[in-house]
Amino acid sequence: VNMPNLMSHLKKVAEQKPQATYYNVDMIKYQVSAEGIQSTPLNLAVSWRGDATNTDLRIDYKYNIEAMAAPMPLYNIHFLVPVDGGKAKLQAMIPPATWNPEQQTIQWKISSLSHRSENGGVGALLGRFQMTEGPCKPTQLAVQFTSEGSTLSGCDIQLVGTGYRLSLVKKRFAAGQFEYQL
């Protein structure tokens, strides 16, 4: 850490927000790229089955405790799937989801998921569609989520030296958008 630059930055922030009692400074941001199912905090398996008039979509998910340096819950998990096969009419979904008939997309939201969740963080999302131009063509599934208190890499930070200290170190990772080719 270049301490003179950090102090200069903190002085500017203090001038802009004199009423604040503390200031957050991003010290390090990095991107992790790892291959294999063992490196992802949310494992997925997707299947499409159908005929000319009906299509069933199934998304199996599993919280992966081994992917994180310290297991923490995943929050605000959004699954978004475009349905391609002419105009589709949603017949059923488990658990409840949001169907957008104009964009022909279905979206499931799970508020949090961890190894302490029901069934150990393992579950399934199911949708059944009636198609006008079936069978449905498999499409990409987009998934987003966040987690706080851990990292995927195990990277940690500490400030060594006298005169300065870190009062708070936040660890957070977010999936901007995982896309799974089906």
Rank of each mutant, 00 (worst) to 15 (best):
A97W: 00
L90F: 00
I106G: 08
P41E: 07
A70S: 14
I37Q: 09
S39T: 15
P138F: 13
D26L: 09
A88C: 06
R49V: 09
P138H: 14
P101F: 10
T105I: 11
L44H: 10
M27G: 14
G120I: 05
M93R: 00
S39M: 09
K17L: 10
E102N: 11
V25C: 05
A124S: 14
F129Y: 14
P82G: 05
S47Y: 02
A97N: 04
Y30T: 12
E133G: 04
R128F: 02
M131A: 11
Q107K: 14
D84T: 09
I77A: 06
N100A: 09
C136I: 03
A20T: 03
L90D: 00
T21L: 09
I110L: 15
V81I: 14
T55F: 00
S33T: 10
L57N: 01
L126I: 11
E133Q: 15
R116Q: 14
K137V: 15
T105E: 15
S39R: 06
Y61D: 04
M131T: 08
V81F: 02
I94W: 03
F79C: 02
T105Y: 04
I94N: 10
Y23I: 05
N100R: 09
H115E: 15
G127L: 08
F129K: 08
M27W: 06
N24V: 12
A69R: 03
K87L: 03
Q130L: 11
T139F: 02
K29A: 12
G50I: 07
L90P: 00
D56R: 12
I28A: 13
N76G: 00
V46K: 09
P96F: 02
E118T: 07
M27E: 05
K17V: 03
Y22G: 04
T40E: 14
G36N: 09
G86A: 01
K17F: 11
Q104R: 11
S117M: 10
I106D: 04
S39P: 00
V81T: 07
L74D: 11
L42C: 11
K137F: 05
I28C: 03
N54Y: 13
V32H: 03
V83R: 06
I65E: 15
Y61C: 00
